[in-house]
Design a binder for these strands. Structure first.
Lengths: 333, 333
DNA sequence: ACACATCATGGGAACGTTCGCAAACATCAA
DNA sequence: TTGATGTTTGCGAACGTTCCCATGATGTGT
């Protein structure tokens, strides 16, 4: 059916070995021959069969990316950026969705693991032991999760949070509320608490809730009781819930209350008013996670399971405040 | 490195053929033997190597889905639903992004075509000829594009549009504006024009523009000049731009102007006010497109290129209005 | 001119699986 | 018993590629 290396070989009057080399190690074949082969290949519309390639042992040329929820607006730009990056480096990306269900994560991994050269696990819920077992079997990079000995991309909100605190302080705010909607080991709350205290801003924490729009709606009603003039939400979605409910309550944003989100998803840029938020650059994450995985793959080749690297690499991604219209001067009592 | 069928065979004391059959045709092997094999396989942690499988000719077990833009909030739920559907049917989904650039579409297709059993092309910009060539080489399903002879999933907005027109009519609106932001062969405008005329509603068309937030912002300023009391936008994103600018202009939605979006993306459900929109069910699209492709794949096996099917199948997906808070009674002048 | 290194090319095994074919064995009707 | 039929299993080729090894051609230093 499809055109094979053999047909190209006979068309160019050389052996299959030479054709193979013309593609995988072009400098090992004489330039005139190479050209003849390339022409014949183009003529016949030949392109190497990835299945045969990977069977022979050359890897799959595919990176696996497993995220909790593809439909979460935070991820699509990351997926997109990683695809672009990977393609430039000769890889394909296979994205999969563990559907936020811990039980599905292992099943998802099993489904893709044989089709990829390595895996990027986002906020994995697996135990450390399981992750180490996995890392012994194939190159692994974790994001938003810390496991000693496994390459990691860490997202640091501290810069953005500090800027947010300064931003609010400069606007004269004194009392703030943080809506916590995270079940993660390292809640965003702790870091926020510290940053705000350092600037002598009072911060009450609500929750933890689920990271949903309704959480923001609900939490918004509690803000007044705390006599707070600023709200910082676990993410943009929750912040939009706050915006929504504030409008319902007749509370004006930002005149009466300022609201800050986290992630700078599309939501933040199209809300009314525009949502001030802490941006985490999707391209940066994608590029670093992808590169880190590829690095791990190429290093690991042929000696997987050689034990945990004493110093596994990690990359830290920064953040910064994107001021929009949802924050402003604190009301003068 | 990985455990192969041979090791399972010797562990279970049978030949490799029998192990293979135990997995691919379980009823052809005696139940006691089968159990012994399955136990051995589980013990060793064996799972078949997809590369070897597909090299042998069994297909890749992967469906390719190419969308214009993964980051467009319309697509993630579709991708997610298709993955779920495909996994249930034993397939994996490889999603790729043509980045809205026509030149990239062919490159993207080339990159994935050897790794998949078939392709779903969303709103392809390829010529009919190219698409036919492609369909001769591999199973193909197009969505949002009509090409005679190629299996197709069609999205029909007419039901939703009719409901929208009735909805506005019931609220007493007379003059409406449609913001056209489509470069597609079949603009959404024509269908809308007809439905509104049928109900004796006047409809002015603005554009065509690009389907972006800023388009809505810009178009919103033109609405007053048309003395219209209702706006229907090309999609939710544009509608949100309208909402945004109306707020800026001090025009209240829905008191002064009603706004309707299309697609029912996440954006519509979290905007303030909640956006009335025409819903296209992502699961329905995903399921039908996936099933249609799988059907084409299994039918086509072994006889690709047998020419264009005289009657290629197509599926039509409906739509319906989701009333939210952005529409209401027309202002009493 | 000779031994020797270098370079370009070809031959062929191997990767892990599936599947057509045939062998071995059991079952059953006549 | 005999042949026919069916069931369960094993053998081995084939899928398309890569890469080790071998071969011949072409230099290079003495």
């Amino acid at each position: 059916m499809a055109v094979t290396i053999r047909e190209v070989a006979s068309a160019a009057g050389v052996s299959v070995s030479t054709v193979s080399r013309a593609f995988t190690a072009p400098d090992q074949v004489q330039s005139t021959t190479r050209q003849r082969i390339l022409d014949a290949a183009a003529e016949l519309g030949y392109s190497p069969n990835p299945a045969a390639r990977s069977l022979r042992g050359g890897g799959t040329g595919t990176l696996g990316l497993i995220v909790p929820d593809i439909a979460n607006p935070f991820f699509p730009p990351i997926i997109k950026a990683m695809q672009a990056r990977a393609r430039r480096l000769g890889y394909t990306v296979l994205v999969s969705d563990s559907d936020e269900r811990e039980a599905d994560e292992l099943a998802t991994i099993a489904a893709v693991s044989k089709r990829v050269d390595g895996l990027i696990l986002w906020a994995s819920t697996l135990t450390e032991n399981r992750l180490h077992e996995l890392a012994d079997q194939m190159p692994l990079v974790v994001v938003n999760r810390h496991v000693p000995g496994i390459p990691e991309v860490r997202i640091s909100l501290s810069a953005g949070i500090t800027q947010a605190a300064e931003h609010l302080k400069a606007y004269g705010h004194r009392r703030c509320v943080f809506i916590n909607a995270s079940r993660a080991e390292l809640s965003r709350g702790k870091s926020i608490q510290e940053s705000f205290e350092a600037l002598d801003l009072s911060l009450s924490e609500l929750g933890p809730y689920e990271p949903r729009f309704e959480t923001g709606v609900h939490a918004a009603t509690l803000v007044a009781a705390h006599e707070a003039t600023a709200v910082i939400a676990h993410n943009d979605l929750v912040a939009l819930g706050v915006l929504h409910q504030m409008a319902n309550l007749g509370v004006s944003v930002p005149r009466d209350v300022s609201v800050i989100g986290i992630d700078d998803t599309l939501l933040a840029s199209v809300s009314t008013p525009g949502l001030t938020t802490i941006r985490i650059d999707p391209e940066e994450i994608a590029t670093h996670a992808g590169d880190l995985l590829i690095e791990t793959i190429t290093q690991t080749t042929g000696r997987i399971g050689s034990g945990v690297d004493a110093s596994s690499p990690f990359v830290e991604i920064g953040s910064r405040l994107i001021p929009r219209a949802s924050t402003g001067p604190a009301p003068t009592h």
